[in-house]
C-alpha cells in the first residue's frame, strides 16, 4: 500500500500534548496515565478513612471497610499491583517470600497466609504476611 508521507517539522505549540514533561519517556508517560486512573480511587479511599476514623457517619464500620478496601484495590489495579497468595491458604514457609506477623520461637514448616503480599512489575513490594497454622482440636 502506498504510504502517506509524514509531514516534516514539529507541530505548532498549541497542538502539542499539554501535560507531559518535555523529556518524559514513554514508560514515565504510561506511569502518569496509570496514576491518572488511580488518583480518584485513592482520593475516595482517603475520604472513607476519615469517615471510619471519625465515626460520624450512618454507615457501619464493616461496610466502610468494604468500601475502603474496594477503593484501595481499584487504585492498586490501576497501578498494576498484583496480590501474592490467597488469604487463609497454607504454604511451605519461605523466608524470601514470607514475613511473620508475630515471629514464633521455632520456625514452622507450614504457615497460613494472614495478609497477601503485593508485587509490581515482578518486584515484591510487601512480602506475604503469615502466621502459624492453628491445629484443629481432635478428640
Amino acid at each position: 500500500m502506498p504510504a502517506v508521507k509524514a509531514k516534516p517539522g514539529r507541530p505548532k505549540k498549541s497542538a502539542a500534548p499539554k501535560r507531559a514533561a518535555p523529556r518524559a519517556s514513554l514508560a514515565d508517560a504510561l506511569g502518569q496515565a496509570a496514576w491518572a486512573e488511580a488518583d480518584s480511587a485513592l482520593a475516595e479511599a482517603l475520604a472513607l478513612c476519615d469517615e471510619a476514623i471519625s465515626g460520624a457517619t450512618d454507615v457501619d464500620q464493616a461496610a466502610l471497610l468494604d468500601l475502603l478496601s474496594q477503593s484501595l484495590a481499584r487504585a492498586a489495579r490501576k497501578r498494576g499491583f498484583t496480590r501474592l497468595g490467597a488469604l487463609g491458604a497454607k504454604e511451605a514457609f519461605d523466608r524470601k517470600r514470607h514475613d511473620f506477623t508475630n515471629p514464633p520461637k521455632r520456625t514452622p514448616k507450614t504457615v497460613r497466609i494472614v495478609a497477601r503480599g503485593v508485587a509490581r512489575a515482578g518486584e515484591t513490594l510487601v512480602k506475604t504476611r503469615v502466621g502459624p497454622v492453628r491445629r484443629t482440636g481432635k478428640k
Binding site: 500500500m1 502517506v4 509524514a6 509531514k7 514539529r10 507541530p11 497542538a15 502539542a16 500534548p17 507531559a20
Partner: peptide, 22 residues
C-alpha cells in the same frame, strides 16, 4: 486526526518517520 498528528509529532521515535502507513 489532529490529536493523532500532534501526538505522533510529540513522540521522539515516530516524529522522525519518513513515512507513516495509517
Amino acid at each position: 486526526l489532529s490529536a493523532v498528528d500532534a501526538a505522533a509529532a510529540y513522540d521522539p521515535m515516530v516524529r522522525d518517520a519518513t513515512s507513516i502507513e495509517r
